[in-house]
Design a protein around this nucleic acid. Sequence first.
DNA 1: CGGTGTGAAAACCTTCACAGCG
DNA 2: CGCTGTGAAGGTTTTCACACCG
Lengths: 265, 265
Amino acid sequence: MATGRTHRPATRSRGIPEATVARLPLYLRALTALSERSVPTVSSEELASAAGVNSAKLRKDFSYLGSYGTRGVGYDVEYLVYQISRELGLTQDWPVVIVGIGNLGAALAGYGGFASRGFRVAALIDADPAMTGKPVAGIPVQHSDDLEKIVSEDGVSIGVIATPAGVAQQVCDRLVAAGVTSILNFAPTVLSVPDGVDVRKVDLSIELQILAFHEQRKAGEEPGAEAAAGGPAGASGAAVPPAARSTEDTSRKGPDGDMPAVMPA
Amino acid sequence: MATGRTHRPATRSRGIPEATVARLPLYLRALTALSERSVPTVSSEELASAAGVNSAKLRKDFSYLGSYGTRGVGYDVEYLVYQISRELGLTQDWPVVIVGIGNLGAALAGYGGFASRGFRVAALIDADPAMTGKPVAGIPVQHSDDLEKIVSEDGVSIGVIATPAGVAQQVCDRLVAAGVTSILNFAPTVLSVPDGVDVRKVDLSIELQILAFHEQRKAGEEPGAEAAAGGPAGASGAAVPPAARSTEDTSRKGPDGDMPAVMPA
DNA sequence: CGGTGTGAAAACCTTCACAGCG
DNA sequence: CGCTGTGAAGGTTTTCACACCG
């Protein structure tokens, strides 16, 4: 997920496949909603559709946790909420620090989804002295000089990095040195961390790029031309068409479009 | 990825595996950095480590795009930047609307990573009349009454939803009806969309939950006890332990910890 | 009967290891 | 010689389909 040495090899932690772990929070969210509506039981079909997966996958996922359903009936909502929470470790308190209180850091600080899942924002940290003491989402920002003290005093093991890319690695190093062993990285850069430290990343622009890829495919496909609204707008060659091969082009195999010939490397 | 009917079946779009597509933006980022440092060529090994993957994977990924390298030498940085950009559709202009200008929406509006990748923030939309006209990141917020007009006039095909969960589906429906065919969803809810519309989601709390899962594992594993700093803090049973089986518990198979027995369903 | 739990098959993705080209 | 490009092997994830149980 991240770089260098990261994330336990290819082992599945305690027999639960990684892909399943990644879906547990989805199930939990759907179950919580059902629970709030006092729905007592739910079938794999119903829950799957509420979580946006198919039911076979859901049943297989649950089978890794144990046999928590009742044949002919379905799953007890409250019971499952508890089991999944426990499996994810959400029955304990996880203090989290957020480093980098810009727009994004502030948004994260105020994000309700954390608190409701057992994550407690233990501290907000920023390098800008002008921010120090200013409350954001009700929590006073602390200066990054105190990072180590904060992490160790509060027993923080999860850190969120929302700084500019340029300082993300050094913030990461300091967090790790202070005892943090899980990092959620919003900076658009690859972090390298020692063994035993987990990094997950969220890159906003990567998601958009993946969408653009699929969007581009849609234009040339549709049997009935590029239907309704929403085609790419200024689809001119706006972006720079950089370098090209310099040597006589003998055998370039790219499926289509070669590059406009300019400036060799 | 999303829900209901979404995302083209299990087909790989034009032969490029989905897993590879998801990594292209990573390569692109690493290559852009090299390009800025005027590095002319790069080996699969170097680029892989800069992108945080292993080199075999990278070479296999590139092999789906075509034979863009030179044996014994490596890849031409500029050339690859262009090829990957083209493959991702980033050589065209993608107008994007962001709906829901709260903390997160504002952060997204100001996020530099968009503009630098061919994404243009065409409009910011919010339902709060008090926001209308207020500039955020230099762009005036427009009222959601005008959503349809904005989308169709600007030929927007990508929408970003950063609203509260409660209104996300209806915003989604309106975007889709107006012609949007790709949606990036930050609201913690499952969106259902008609066939042909892609949805990708980013859920901040899901990532943290996955980290918590692994974090929890670390405690009980380490050969030399739970070393240094950073253990879970208030690891008491703080969270509510909800319902339990009501009938005599005959055959519950959950690997360990059954539930504290209280309140039947 | 209805719906879970699960072997077995299929699809997909990653890694290995090396032929072959510049 | 060095490094790409790629078949083949190995792993993981998804899907199928049905035995089995309440």
